[in-house]
Design a protein around this nucleic acid. Structure first.
Lengths: 146, 146
DNA sequence: TGTTTCTCAACACTGATTGTAGATAAGGCA
DNA sequence: TGCCTTATCTACAATCAGTGTTGAGAAACA
């Protein structure tokens, strides 16, 4: 993802206005590796700007996704997650207990896309989701089963 | 998925009661290859039993998933889809326009699960989702772009 | 500075799914 | 077969993530 300054330029270049709320969201996303939900971004943004509304957060996240600066992921955790890492092709590791998401950059960088020709599909992209338990949930699962 | 008769046995063996509503849902799922949503199952069930409630459909689908007879999939189409095919390991092809889902049985039957050990994750399963356009949506996309 | 246009926040609303509670039916047993 | 216990059913309300609307306000640009 670009820096807040670059995003400001990009938004202006695309005829979008740059507000204090948007810059706040840019800063929140910068360097966030947790694949936050809109709600999580809102909570973090609220710490810098008390009155920012959830609707504004949703709208700005959609704008960023439309410009290709973040990607939105539905990983089956009940809400859409936003991933600022759009530069390295990668897949995801999802904790089936707490929903935590981590990038898996090294695995399957060039997954062969099968041709769905026999089914008539025109296949455009492939995503792999690995599900398991994160370190924390693994730990608490162990303690519970004693 | 097992036959309606086998499912009846299985439910009884697990201390669950077998009602006309449940058997109706068993029949609806039998041989359904469309990965229906709960709503779609409800519509089909209503054709056999007018008064069956959506809540009952959700509950029975969850029971079946709990017993491992169907699997529930969140493929990013806005609702959970149910897949009666739990016998052949397979992946999914999802139409990004209409949400139609097809099985891809032959592709990557034995995807190597990377060890998430360096991230502390204990990885249990892997799913690949291929996104593209189904034959029908491809056709209408072509017609629109003329 | 003035004007235009976009964005903001508050609020109501949607659509999928779940919780509640009284009515009803299944399954075991006499 | 009829009764009794317990699970399940339906209807209804509620939840939760996300979206549409609208008047007020701020950004961009001349």
């Amino acid at each position: 993802m670009k820096t807040p300054g670059e995003l400001t330029e990009l938004f202006r270049a695309n005829g979008r206005k740059v507000t204090a709320q948007r810059q706040c969201i840019f800063r929140v996303l910068q360097g966030d590796m947790t694949h936050p939900s809109a709600e999580a971004v809102h909570v973090a943004a609220t710490r810098q700007m008390e009155t920012i509304s959830l609707k504004t957060v949703y709208q700005t996240l959609h704008d960023l996704a439309e410009l290709g600066e973040i990607s939105s992921l539905d990983l089956g955790t009940g809400m859409i997650r936003f991933d600022p890492n759009v530069d390295d092709p990668h897949h995801h590791l999802v904790c089936r207990h707490c929903g935590k998401v981590r990038d898996l950059v090294a695995a399957f960088p060039d997954l062969q896309i099968p041709n769905g020709a026999d089914l008539g599909f025109e296949v455009g992209s492939a995503e792999i989701v690995f599900r398991g338990l994160c370190p924390e949930c693994r730990q608490s699962a162990l303690q519970l089963s004693i």
